[in-house]
Design a protein around this nucleic acid. Structure first.
Lengths: 113, 113
DNA sequence: TTAACTATTAACGATATCGAGAACTAAATT
DNA sequence: AATTTAGTTCTCGATATCGTTAATAGTTAA
């Protein structure tokens, strides 16, 4: 349903998560991603296609060498995922609060920890 | 490597993510989770076992009826995942900052947008 | 214009995942 | 004690996923 589903699916693979980890520090050519993560070029290409399809990365040819394809992180989907997690956490904190309020008879501002 | 991998794998399935979404609002019996998400009891049981194995949920028998197994969210793993995303986002913001610094010659506090 | 290089796509086999139905366990009800 | 209820485990077949090898496209270098 939500786009978070497909984002999670894309990140479920360790190689693809490794790509995201590497791209945090800046754009990189597909070949470097492959060699650093111990994946064959075809395998990496497939992973990159999935990440591209899910909008997690973006591709662009290198200025100085048209053969090289630079991949860079596209953080919007990750931000969505972060929002989903925040949502869950806020609900969770509400529950903890109401629980401690129940116990301590102090409706707001109780030290939950 | 990291525990985030297995967490993502556990959340990759839409049914399992639906379970997490439902459990945000409070504990629920396995049967309710199954019927609300349109999964057969055996299928739901398998999904719950995976979520339990990855530490995302916890199970406990109901006080008033020992047949019922209540599942509740265990948010630690989700918090780890949130931290991983925060890490990526902070790197990303650093990059945006250094980029805008490059452009605007003002190292800190520039409006990135 | 060839040859080398970067990367992608295609075809195929191995492995993993998932759901459905049957059998089983444990607790409550009668 | 026998039956019903809640949930799990087992087995099996269908489907999806992933990696490897081979072939292809586009770009640069000789």
């Amino acid at each position: 349903m939500s786009k978070v589903d497909s984002t999670l699916h894309a990140l479920a693979d360790p190689t693809r998560r490794g790509v995201v980890d590497l791209l945090r520090h800046g754009p990189r050519p597909a070949g470097e991603l492959a060699s650093e993560l111990g994946a064959s070029p075809p395998a990496m290409s497939r992973h990159l296609r999935i990440l591209r399809r899910e909008g997690l990365v973006d591709e662009q040819r290198a200025d100085d060498d048209g053969r090289v394809r630079l991949y860079r992180l596209e953080p919007d989907r990750l931000a969505e995922l972060a929002r989903w997690l925040d949502e869950i956490e806020s609900f969770w904190n509400d529950q903890l609060e109401s629980f401690s309020a129940h116990v301590a008879h102090k409706p707001s501002g109780g030290a939950v920890q």
